[in-house]
């Protein structure tokens, strides 16, 4: 299948008062038409920033470079802002973690959905209204005709996230980026929203990048997984392979922090130590301060992404099928 989204060497640097922070470090990403890609990693690993970079939503203190940033064969790097706006919001849409603050408090949800339609689809006023009702219905909002006139503060967080989803799929995007769409919601609502997203994804054969902290969510929904650590891509492979035979020690640690796969909703922060911050990036492998298998080479040299039969892993000593590092005496 041809790649719908193709990212090579994406790098994002922020100029902050404490110096330059490389939030995304030469990340590659491919998403095929209709595919669900899970992106996982601890807080601060650059998941959101890399996707905001793709959408062109970074602030003026961010510097973006990439070898290639292409959507459906169109090179995004050479587009003018105006051309890019024709794509963003129409063919690529994004939803965010905090549904309630992500909607404008001063406008009705109907206005905000119709606005997206007006921008990219045109149509008559009546058509847009009908389509908005249809969309609210599609995302499971009861009494959609009346809800059009509701303000975001009159709806619950779950309802607002449904509105965000309706708005995002309004123009039938080919790629939906969902940045932790359920993190801010109640546990029961989380499952409903995920179910809604996967249903819409299948019905419309829409590709989806699902950013999450929740390994259980990834195992249920994603076909492929990318693991990020401190701005770098550290491992990517199919979800099945990743869950049964992780190659990178970080991925393995993430998975083992899942209490016996049975318990859902496990968080990732159970690996000892912290993601390196701006001033304390190790010289060698970025994971070496926290890696159980780190040796002198790891601490002196940065590993590349190495190809194995099923995927890529950024480690000198990728784990073998039994979970032990290769090429290191036990």
């Amino acid at each position: 299948m041809p790649a719908l989204l193709e990212i090579r060497g994406l790098t994002v640097e922020f100029t902050t008062s404490r110096g330059i922070l490389r939030a995304v470090d030469r990340v590659d990403m491919d998403v095929a038409e209709g595919e669900v890609l899970g992106v996982v990693g601890e807080s601060g690993s650059g998941k959101s920033v890399s996707m905001l970079a793709l959408m062109g939503l970074l602030g003026s203190n961010a510097k973006l470079t990439a070898d290639r940033l292409a959507f459906a064969g169109t090179d995004l790097l050479t587009l003018t802002p105006r051309q890019r706006r024709k794509l963003v919001g129409k063919d690529v849409a994004m939803i965010f973690q905090e549904p309630t603050t992500s909607l404008n408090p001063c406008f009705t949800v109907g206005f905000q959905i119709v606005e997206a339609l007006k921008e990219h689809m045109g149509g008559t006023r009546k058509w847009r209204r009908d389509r908005a009702v249809e969309l609210l219905n599609l995302v499971g909002i009861p009494d959609p005709g009346a809800r059009l006139n509701a303000f975001p503060h009159q709806l619950s967080g779950g309802m607002n996230q449904r509105v965000m989803i309706a708005m995002a799929i309004a123009c039938q995007p080919r790629l939906l980026i969902a940045d932790e769409p359920t993190t801010a919601l109640d546990v029961t609502i989380q499952a409903q929203i995920l179910e809604l997203l996967t249903r819409l994804q299948r019905q419309h054969n829409m590709a989806m990048v699902l950013i999450t902290h929740d390994m259980a969510v990834v195992s249920e929904t994603a076909q492929r997984v990318q693991v990020m650590y401190a701005g770098q891509l550290v491992e990517t492979r199919s979800a099945d392979d990743l869950f049964s035979r992780p190659r990178h020690p970080y991925t393995a640690a993430l998975l083992s922090s899942l209490p016996e796969h049975a318990e859902r909703r496990a968080r990732l922060a159970t690996i000892p130590g912290l993601v390196p911050g701006i001033g304390d990036r190790p010289v060698g492998c970025l994971f070496s301060p926290r890696c159980a298998h780190a040796n002198d080479r790891c601490r002196a040299e940065r590993p590349d992404l190495y190809r194995d039969p099923e995927g890529l892993a950024r480690c000198f000593y990728p784990l073998d099928d039994s979970g032990r590092p290769e090429g290191v005496a036990a």
Binding site: L57, R85, L87, G89, A93, M94, T101, C106, F107, M167
Partner: peptide, 29 residues
């Protein structure tokens, strides 16, 4: 700096609309 401004930009709206409609409407209060 609000999230809804990011949403408005993510919809592909022009800066004029993002600032003049979504921004100003709230800033006016």
């Amino acid at each position: 700096n609000e999230d809804y401004i990011r949403t408005a930009r993510a919809k592909g709206l022009s800066s004029f609309r993002v600032i003049g409609i979504h921004g100003l409407r709230n800033a006016m209060i």
